[in-house]
């Protein structure tokens, strides 16, 4: 099967998952009614709940997947996820501040705190990683991200352990969910995500050159430093935006790029294309399962993704001839 055919098949699968996400829930809607809703209640459910939720899932999935692919390509570390540059801990720290210090309790209130936290912390990580050099060495970048993330995580833990109200708010925020977000939460973040995706598309080809090593990349005409800055900016915008909308959803950004790489081989352009389609498939499938498993209750999608994705990842790494980074 050629790569293009595989991509088309994945796209078809994505359409199926999107339809399922609109149809399945506490009240199931038959497929014909999904396409042409006649019943008033069903129309309301689709318009106010299922459709926004599916759109949020699509957007968050794409953003997380692409940022994961970029960060793995940049650091060449299979343990690197989009949160590694401090996005996750930064967002969590600022949300804890919002709850604990400013007494904010709504998701729209958290939104900008989370996004600001992700941006500020990533910039600091980059400055530490690049300190005193022309360019940020990926290993130092990762260590700086982990170290700063640990510091912020510790302070967040201290704040929440001493404040039960903040603890309670944080444990629900940190599960990660795309339910009840609504399009109102998406619109303000969308431009940032769009810029992130454009930057990702620009960086794909030079990343292929950088995979050969910095010197070879320079000889091939790629701007190593500029590419790294572009990639870090894209990762921050995408992962920060996704975290602001849905809370920290792990594993999508970690797993999907690995799977995409095993399907396509090392070309970043193909990896990014596949990731863009596969990541929302994983996220929406997990979300649908989270609605079905404990009816009429729901499990937040951030909890289900690992249960859906982990078995796939383990089977793949045991069967295929996998390529490292």
């Amino acid at each position: 099967m050629s790569k293009t055919a595989g991509l088309v098949a994945a796209l078809v699968l994505l359409v199926v998952v999107v339809l399922a996400s609109i149809a399945i829930g506490a009240r199931d809607i038959p497929l014909p009614a999904v396409l042409h809703p006649t019943d008033v209640t069903e129309r309301l459910i689709i318009r106010d709940l299922r459709f926004p939720r599916t759109v949020v899932g699509l957007i968050v999935g794409i953003a997380l997947g692409v940022s994961g692919a970029l960060i793995q390509a940049l650091t060449r570390n299979p343990l690197a996820d989009p949160g590694i540059l401090g996005v996750g801990p930064g967002a969590a720290f600022f949300v804890a501040l919002a709850v604990g210090v400013f007494g904010i309790g709504s998701i729209t209130g958290y939104l900008w705190f989370a996004f600001a936290g992700a941006l500020v912390v990533t910039v600091v990580v980059y400055v530490i990683g690049a300190a005193g050099r022309r360019t940020a060495d990926p290993v130092r970048l990762v260590l700086a991200g982990v170290a700063l993330g640990a510091v912020l995580g510790g302070i967040t833990a201290a704040m929440t352990l001493l404040d039960p109200v903040a603890f309670d708010a944080m444990r629900f925020w940190s599960a990660g969910t795309i339910a009840d977000r609504g399009l109102a939460v998406v619109w303000p973040v969308l431009p940032f995500l769009a810029i992130g995706l454009i930057l990702a598309a620009i960086a794909a080809a030079p990343l292929n050159a950088i995979a050969l090593g910095d010197d070879a990349a320079s000889a091939l005409g790629a701007h190593v430093t500029r590419t790294r800055v572009v990639v870090v900016a894209a990762v921050t915008l995408l992962a920060g935006g996704a975290t602001a909308i849905a809370g920290p959803i792990g594993f999508v950004g970690l797993m999907v790029p690995h799977v995409a790489r095993w399907i396509t081989g090392p070309d970043q352009r193909w990896i990014l294309a596949y990731t863009t389609v596969l990541a929302p498939i994983l996220l929406l499938t997990a979300d649908v399962l989270g609605r079905v498993v404990m009816r009429p209750g729901e499990i937040p999608v951030g909890i289900v993704t690992a249960f859906v994705g982990a078995p796939v990842l383990i089977v793949l790494i045991r069967r295929t001839r996998v390529s490292g980074l």
């Binding site: 299979p78 343990l79 792990g250 594993f251 970690l254 797993m255 690995h258 690992a306 249960f307 994705g309 982990a310 078995p311 990842l313 383990i314 790494i317 996998v322």
Partner: peptide, 9 residues
Amino acid sequence: IVGIAVAAT
């Protein structure tokens, strides 16, 4: 990779 998968679950 297996460690990531199991730990994430």
